[in-house]
Nucleic acid binder design. Sequence first.
DNA 1: AATTATTTTGCAAAAATTTTCAGGTTTGTG
DNA 2: CACAAACCTGAAAATTTTTGCAAAATAATT
Lengths: 249, 249
Amino acid sequence: MLKRERQAYILRKVNLHNKVLSSALCTEINVSEDTIRRDLQELAEEGKLIKVHGGALSHSFNEINYSTNGIYSQSEKKKIATKTITLLEEGMFVLTSGGTTILEFAKSLPLHLKATFISGSIPAVLEYIQHPNIEVIMIGDRISKNSKITVGSEAIHKINQMKPDLCILGTNAIDIEHGVTDGDWEVVQLKRAMVRASKKVACLAIAEKLNTVQPIQICDINKVDVLITELNPDADILQPFIKAGVQVL
Amino acid sequence: MLKRERQAYILRKVNLHNKVLSSALCTEINVSEDTIRRDLQELAEEGKLIKVHGGALSHSFNEINYSTNGIYSQSEKKKIATKTITLLEEGMFVLTSGGTTILEFAKSLPLHLKATFISGSIPAVLEYIQHPNIEVIMIGDRISKNSKITVGSEAIHKINQMKPDLCILGTNAIDIEHGVTDGDWEVVQLKRAMVRASKKVACLAIAEKLNTVQPIQICDINKVDVLITELNPDADILQPFIKAGVQVL
DNA sequence: AATTATTTTGCAAAAATTTTCAGGTTTGTG
DNA sequence: CACAAACCTGAAAATTTTTGCAAAATAATT
């Protein structure tokens, strides 16, 4: 990894989380703590961040706490993201939807992962292309303005031609009886195609989406291979899903 | 392998992945590291990439992290944007490239305009979808990390199936003799298809891009219907273009 | 086709940069 | 205060770059 690249990565991390720990960075990037320290020091000299004992802070830290940049229940989504990463393998083809949970996932992808990510979500793709080792494929078609995702028959057709190893769905409603459901007809069409095309399907959902139903069905619960929530897998609310044959993380 | 094609290969790789390692390139191309280094140095001198210890980075990668957020000669680009808007008509199908000039244009679209915009540029599309009356179509394919635009045969194929009323090109180099040229092989392929498919072609270029040439040609000057710069159309430098049959705004 | 000129490439030793390591010192915390 | 974690300093180790030069390849000329 190039020095410049590493520093850019650190800077991005600082701006994202408002702080970084030297110890965390050095295991993550796989260099000695000395190197990290020197990087932080150099970045501090350039005024890009503030060096503190044990790590560094972003400049905007003192200002308003805009870290909670509007994302609803961000910490839960971070937890989901971390679990989701365990599903990834080297060289995988991964198809993802959009949404804030997916976005959180996109931001926490491990640095050294080499894989191909396919998505119709503009915000998700914008995150993916920041990653040094991930190849990104955007699915084209008409864009749904409120979800910032490509929808339409062309997009669906394109998805049908693929056979991704894993499909990761941001989920708005999931229920044993009604399966995965959503409220936007066009997005549902797309997600249906995604589920159909993929070898394996993972649904990301914060707990409050469990056992809720939306008007239009994406797929039955038996199409879902993995369900990932912020809860511990032995939580009561998750047991019915496990009984239904879903792997719960 | 000739020097020229080797450098073209390197440049292509930088534009696509945002970085290259000298060590990786030399095993890949099967030349000594010295040769690669010399290539990178030459390309850096020509301003095509940024040489760093151990390899090279794309320009956009560096900008993102060195955060010189101010758009270069923004006021000129605003002026160009304003003129470009006069070309737009109700209900038009407009195909656009990416780039900062296009982005400025995207921001200044009149509120009432109803039209369909097609693009492979992620930043441009992000602007277009802010607009209440514009339908946006994203062209899908692999994403070039440097230019944040979709490139590849799928994208070209998609463009070939369309017949847009107007093609608006952000232009890096335009010259009477050599026409419109650019340095990024992948992007050139895409722009060629855009020009070929469209009924009318408009090139946006700030004055300093006039009478400059880049290595790869997109199209001859006679394919350009309209040239838009920040200058007054009766400026001396523009007269040759008018004589060549280009409408100058 | 052969010769000459020019460019390009590969090599090796030395220089520079970057990373790691080893030690002693400082800092934060209970 | 004690103790662990983080820091600093300087030097070694590893990697990349520079430099000059000769061999090889390419282009131009006879």
